[in-house]
């Protein structure tokens, strides 16, 4: 299973330390913890990032926002980039904890 497909089935949230500032072309994301600054250069990506928390997984987030399936790999790559600097992080739930322990 590729990394793209794996992330589609995972639940992610905007990191609680991150603020999104709207900009004419998208948004500026600022992380108060590691002080990293990132720009989201497309409006749909901003919508995806904002919608993550309300959706059970990345796949349904992309569907809700209306991103064509052909563009999903690009969006997943962008989300992975955001995850690398802790802008978004995997959702922690009691259930998820159990699953992760099971994997470990």
């Amino acid at each position: 299973m590729s990394e793209t497909t794996a992330m589609l089935d995972e639940a992610w949230d905007l990191s609680p330390a991150v603020a999104l500032r709207p900009e004419p072309f998208g948004a500026m994301a600022y992380h108060f913890g590691n002080r990293k600054l990132t720009f989201l250069k497309r409006m749909p990506l901003v919508e995806v990032v904002r919608a993550l928390a309300d959706q059970p997984d990345v796949r349904s987030t992309l569907q809700t926002v209306g991103v064509p399936e052909a563009h999903w790999p690009g969006y997943v790559a962008a989300l992975q980039g955001l995850a690398a600097t802790d802008m978004i992080r995997p959702r922690v739930t009691s259930q998820a904890n159990t699953v992760q322990k099971g994997v470990a």
């Binding site: 500032r21 709207p22 900009e23 004419p24 072309f25 500026m28 720009f39 250069k41």
Partner: peptide, 11 residues
């Protein structure tokens, strides 16, 4: 980003 920055930001 450079192209966007040249057109200015909201803040």
């Amino acid at each position: 980003l450079i192209e966007q920055f040249e057109l200015g930001l909201d803040a």
